[in-house]
């Protein structure tokens, strides 16, 4: 279930999240808004790690994987599940992105940086998200 309408500021979700995440900056809440369009979501969120060209990059014996030309994205559920649950260094995005935004960015990544057929809808993300979103567990975070 999408818990909010599009384009509500990020702090709106903070209210839903547990006390540990009441602040999205150390000592306050920002009003930063993430647009709904797939390309914009990519540039404002995913690019922080996967790079502007979606080619990722090398770390210390590990890498941020490329999303461009990535055969694993043929399976629509794969990126959707990662956005909902995270894995390894890849964060979950249930506190920052709506299901609509997740669908949009998955379509952008699968279509623009790859050429896989098929689109993901908001309802599709709702279905994959059968379990409740992760609840952050840290009472001492936010330094």
């Amino acid at each position: 279930m999408d818990r909010r309408a599009c384009l509500l500021p990020v702090l709106a979700i903070a209210a839903f999240a547990s006390a540990g995440r009441a602040q999205d900056s150390a000592g306050g809440q920002t009003s930063v808004q993430v647009p709904d369009e797939g390309r914009a979501v990519y540039e404002q969120i995913c690019q922080a790690c996967h790079m502007a060209d979606a080619k990722g990059g090398d770390g210390a014996g590990a890498r941020i994987p490329a999303l461009a030309g990535n055969p694993r994205l043929a399976d629509k559920d794969y990126p959707v599940t990662l956005l909902l649950k995270g894995r390894g260094g890849m964060p979950w995005f249930t506190e920052i992105l709506t299901h609509r935004q997740m669908a949009a960015v998955v379509n952008y990544v699968r279509g623009h940086f790859n050429s896989f057929p098929g689109t993901v809808t908001e309802a599709y993300v709702d279905r994959v998200a059968s379990a409740p979103p992760p609840k952050p567990d840290c009472m001492t975070c936010g330094n």
């Binding site: 900056s25 920002t30 993430v34 922080a48």
Partner: peptide, 13 residues
């Protein structure tokens, strides 16, 4: 800046 959340990703990108 000490940015986190969506603002942190924006600046990191």
């Amino acid at each position: 800046a000490f940015a986190s959340g969506a603002g942190g990703y924006q600046l990191a990108g």
